[in-house]
Structures are given as C-alpha cells and as structure tokens.
Nucleic acid binder design. Structure first.
Lengths: 138, 138
DNA sequence: TATAAAACCTGTAGCCACTACAGGTTCAGG
DNA sequence: CCTGAACCTGTAGTGGCTACAGGTTTTATA
C-alpha cells in the first residue's frame, strides 16, 4: 500500500511556481534543478521535491543571487554540518554586492536629476544635458 | 599652412578616456562611435572629435544609458531643433528606470538583512535562511 | 639600419540568464 | 480515433562587453 506521490508536467510546474517552462528546462540544463523522471514518451515528470527546489531557486533569484551562488546554497542545504555559518556568509557577501549596486544607482539618480534640473532652468540655445555630457571636464 | 589636427592611436585614445581599447572597437562595430580614418598600414587614427564623442559615450554609460539610448542621444545632439525637450524626456525616462532598479534592490536588501538577522538569532539546529527559502509559503 | 617588442589588425567565441524559435513527438479531451 | 495543446531537442539571439588566436604594423632601442 505505497501512496504514489503526485507528479507534474513542466507546464503544471511552471504555473504552480511562476517560473517559465523554458526557464525550468534551462535550470535543469545548467545543473541547478535536479533532472526529473520521464514518462514512457519522454516527457518530464516533476515531484513535490522538484517544486520545493524550484521555489527555493525562484526566491533566491528574486533576491538577486547568481545561478552559481544558488548552486552553492543548494549544496550547503544538502550537507548538515557547519552549514548555517557558510550560508550566513554567502548571504552577507551578496548583501554587500546589492548595497554596492544601490550606491552606484543612487549616484546615477542624483546626476540624472541634476541634468534634468539644468534642463528645466534652461534659457539659452542648445541643450544643457548634451552640452554638459559633451564638454564637462571631469 | 594648414594646422594639422592631432591624431591618436586606439591605445592612446583608450588611455586618455578610460575606455578599454577592445571596447572602443566594439563601439565602432555597433555604430556608436564614428569610424576613424586609417594609416597606410590600416591602424585607426582618432581625432579630438572622436575623443569628445567617446567621452560623451563613457559618461552616458556611467549613467546607465543603454547603447541604443546613447545612439539616440547622439543623433539628437546632431540635430538642432526641438532637441532639448527630447533629450530631457529621454533622460527623465531613464531616471524612472534607474529609480525602479533602486526600488527592487532595496527590497532585496531588506529581505537579505532580515534573513541574516534570523540567522544571528538562531539557536535551533538547521539553518534558518535555508529553511525560510525552502519552506516559506508566499 | 636592423631587430625586437609592443601595439595594432580581423574575426570569432565566451560570459550571464534567459528567451525564442524550428521542426518534430506525445499526450489529453471529446 | 482524432485534433490540438503541450511537450521534446537543439540552436541562435539578447546586451555589453572581454578574451582569445594568428597575423601585420609601428615604434623604440642597439
């Protein structure tokens, strides 16, 4: 009396996780998502384990982790010792990256606002934005 | 008694603008930087005009404009009518993009900090980061 | 002036994380 | 049983470079 666990097609998995079907295939191809079993005809059959793993991957991607970083996290999730500290470090390192990107973008934002401000105050001929970008010295 | 304007090799242009030599070639290839004259032997000879144009391109890239957007800006810089308003609009549109990216990254930042905080407060077995990413319902 | 080294040339392939085909096969509903 | 949707594989394209390979030209030194 073995209870068969349910399986899902690629489309069903896509709908239930919000990850596009083609992307799921890509994740398998690059070794991120475990290869599922197949039907007699060759169609992929995913299990609840795949669903959990794919949701994990999706959440990590939403947090901006690279594929290679997620591979690392999944490997850590498999092992059971000293894992937590390593995961914490990987997450902290990623946080630093994210904060650096934010800093860069905020510098861009300030400059863009400045440029637009110059433009609004424009009374002369020509475009201050173009002029500044063409001729500024720095 | 024509005063010859100075010319620069690719490497000289690279050093004086901070844009890598290979990147300069790429910009020419994709139609962003005007093709320069050549020596008898086929080496590129850049002028001060190229230098100005490349500096403009570099500054736009530093502000996060896409190559296609810069092409548009350079086209606008060439024409002389109604240009300013179009440039202002392009810049404003880009600012919106940048602000959207900042918003996304800040959301990531908050979540990553939360996760790390969970980890710091961890007393149980297992890794809270992994657990949350694997099993959260949202 | 000869030569060696640096810089240049072209063209192509790789990076990341997908996305979008083409051309064929299998599955599910009626 | 048949149709049409969903699936299969493999490949090429995206953006903005970067990194070769394999050859030519220029430049600096002896």
């Amino acid at each position: 009396m073995t209870t068969e666990s349910p399986t899902y097609s690629r489309g069903q998995l896509a709908r239930s996780t919000g990850v596009k079907g083609e992307t799921i295939r890509y994740y398998e191809q690059c070794g991120l998502l475990a290869a599922p079993g197949r039907t007699a005809g060759g169609h992929r059959m995913y299990t609840d384990d795949h669903k959990r793993q794919l949701n994990f991957i999706r959440r990590c991607r939403e947090l901006g982790f690279a594929i290679s970083e997620i591979t690392g996290l999944l490997d850590l999730a498999q092992t059971d010792e000293k894992t937590c500290e390593q995961v914490r470090q990987a997450t902290a390192a990623h946080l630093v990256d994210v904060q650096a990107k934010i800093k860069d973008l905020r510098a861009m934002e300030r400059t863009l606002k400045d440029l637009i401000g110059q433009c609004d105050a424009n009374s002369t001929a020509g475009c201050p934005i173009i002029d500044i970008l063409l001729f500024q010295s720095h």
